[in-house]
């Protein structure tokens, strides 16, 4: 993950629920309560990069500043849906960088099951993406033009899957161009 990678930055900017374990003076603006103390036990949504720092760093006391929760995109409800049918879930609506978020969360939590479900989801959807990418036509501006029932599925792809779709579509297109060229000469 490169420092200047826009996707990495956007991944880290996704929100994670945090519960404060201590009173913090002056941080009330996080909870729409500017100028006041942030009370112990308040749940706020913080970007991943910030909440990670707060959760991992421990001050003078042994108590952690915040406790991390699982983001709603990785909630058990979503995991069950993914287990039932990976292809019918709209990942983009859950999180733009769904797999990036998943990988970052798995670094922080020891969740074997989420890891398994995510990998299985990625595998199953990848095969589906490849099929769509190969069948997609070429749009008027050189991009992919999908017709039919694939549109709904492709709209629900997260950023990583979109890159995958683009890669598969580009190589299929290059192949078609080469074969078409052969015909012209």
């Amino acid at each position: 993950m490169s420092y200047y990678d826009v996707d990495a930055i956007l991944t880290d900017a996704q929100k994670v629920p945090c519960t404060f374990e201590l009173d913090v003076p002056g941080l009330g603006f996080l909870d729409n309560n500017a100028g006041h103390t942030l009370r112990e036990g308040t749940r706020v949504e913080l970007p991943l990069w910030l909440s990670e720092m707060l959760a991992v760093s421990s001050g003078s006391t042994s108590k952690n500043l915040v406790t991390l929760g699982l983001p709603p995109a990785l909630a058990p409800r979503v995991m069950n849906a993914l287990k039932a049918d990976p292809k019918s879930v709209d990942l983009r609506a859950l999180a733009q960088h769904f797999y990036g978020l998943g990988a970052r969360i798995l670094e922080l939590f020891d969740e074997k099951e989420i890891c398994e479900v995510l990998m299985q989801t990625f595998r199953t959807r990848a095969a589906e993406i490849a099929d769509h990418a190969n069948n997609a036509g070429v749009g008027s501006r050189g991009g992919a033009a999908v017709v039919g029932d694939g549109v709904e599925f492709l709209r629900g792809l997260d950023e990583d899957e979109r890159a995958l779709f683009r890669a598969a579509h580009d190589s299929a297109k290059a192949m078609k161009v080469w074969m078409g060229e052969m015909k012209k000469n």
Binding site: Y99, G102, A103, L106, E107, L118, M119, F122, R123
Partner: peptide, 12 residues
């Protein structure tokens, strides 16, 4: 792309 994605997910 697929292998890279799986490697990232399975890194932990």
């Amino acid at each position: 792309g697929v292998m890279d994605g799986l490697r990232k997910l399975g890194a932990s």
